[in-house]
Simulated assay, not measured.
Amino acid sequence: MRYNDLADFLNRGKQALAKGPVAMILVEDATEVDSTIQHHLQLGFKSVLVFATEGLEPTPENEDNIHLIPFDMSADNALTTAVNSIIKAAPGIWLYYCFNAEYLFYPFCESRTVGEMVAFHTEERRSSILTYAVDLYASDLNQSPDAVSLENAFLDKSGYYALAREDAANNHQPKDRQLDFYGGLRWRFEEHIPWERRKIDRIALFRAQKGLELRPDHTFNDEEYNTYSCEWHHNITAAICSFRVAKALKHNPGSTYDIETFHWHNSAKFEWNSQQLMDLGLMEPGQWF
């Protein structure tokens, strides 16, 4: 379905938020919009909300599950405005957000739906799932000058690390069960990445509740949502395999001429399956077998 704007969707599209999980795809440019939508539909999301600047709207194959919402992604606070509006309208529903040319993978996603995963996670008394934005990039920038290639996508197989997340309101003591994660292109080309955008962790899968708000740094105002696991054992984590940083580095005039290739000795061809990501330690199943 197509809507006039976000307010129109919140007025007429409430049925799309009646049952989750619901995916929100924030479209920043025309790159791989259709493949992003189809990937998430195949994972089992009940509805896919596509926030796109006018002129970038895709032509959906399944009008019943896809909801096109004209939205200016270049506006200040576009991310938090879009996501927090849906949180407020859908209390109790599991939500997910990503950008175009980003693809969610979770343990055993080839044989289990995203609904099955969040149902298990809910039984573990958890309302959020930590996800890592794993950078993808084309192997040959001469053939793919925008750094995007689904057929020849590569990722870094090492170079990831975590630091304690300090609590500025508590003498900069480490926060309980919270870490800042780094790696990928944001680490290797950090001179081109503002420091506040170098983290790769997001709480991209979560259950909406009254008063919950996403902050610009991909954390929530409820600190328990920002934890990587519960207190008694490890939980599921997931990965968002993303071309977003690679295409930004090649689009930005300040970095494009400094980068002839993203390939290095720790590059590995992306196999588009969850087992590779688990083998590399980029996500884990927790107690879900």
Score class of each variant (00 low, 15 high):
E61I: 03
D64C: 01
D64H: 10
N65M: 09
N65A: 14
H67L: 05
I69W: 14
P70C: 08
A78R: 07
T80W: 04
T81S: 14
A82Y: 04
A82M: 04
S85Q: 01
S85I: 01
I87A: 02
A89H: 04
P91S: 06
P91N: 08
I93V: 15
W94I: 01
N100K: 05
N100G: 06
L104E: 07
F105H: 12
F105K: 02
Y106K: 10
Y106T: 10
P107R: 10
F108E: 14
F108W: 10
C109F: 11
C109M: 13
R112I: 11
R112Y: 11
V114S: 08
E116F: 00
V118T: 13
V118N: 05
T122K: 14
T122A: 14
E123W: 00
S127F: 11
S128Q: 05
I129T: 09
L130M: 15
Y132D: 03
A133W: 01
D135Q: 10
A138R: 07
D140Y: 11
N142C: 11
S144E: 13
D146E: 14
V148H: 08
L150Q: 14
A153S: 15
A153Q: 07
F154L: 14
L155Q: 04
K157M: 12
K157D: 08
G159E: 12
G159Q: 13
Y161H: 07
A162H: 01
E166R: 07
Q173V: 00
P174E: 03
K175L: 14
D176I: 06
D180W: 00
Y182G: 01
G184E: 05
L185S: 04
W187N: 06
E191S: 09
E191C: 01
E191T: 08
H192P: 01
W195M: 12
W195C: 04
W195R: 14
E196S: 14
R198K: 12
R198N: 03
K199N: 09
K199S: 09
R202Q: 11
A204N: 13
F206V: 02
R207F: 05
A208Q: 07
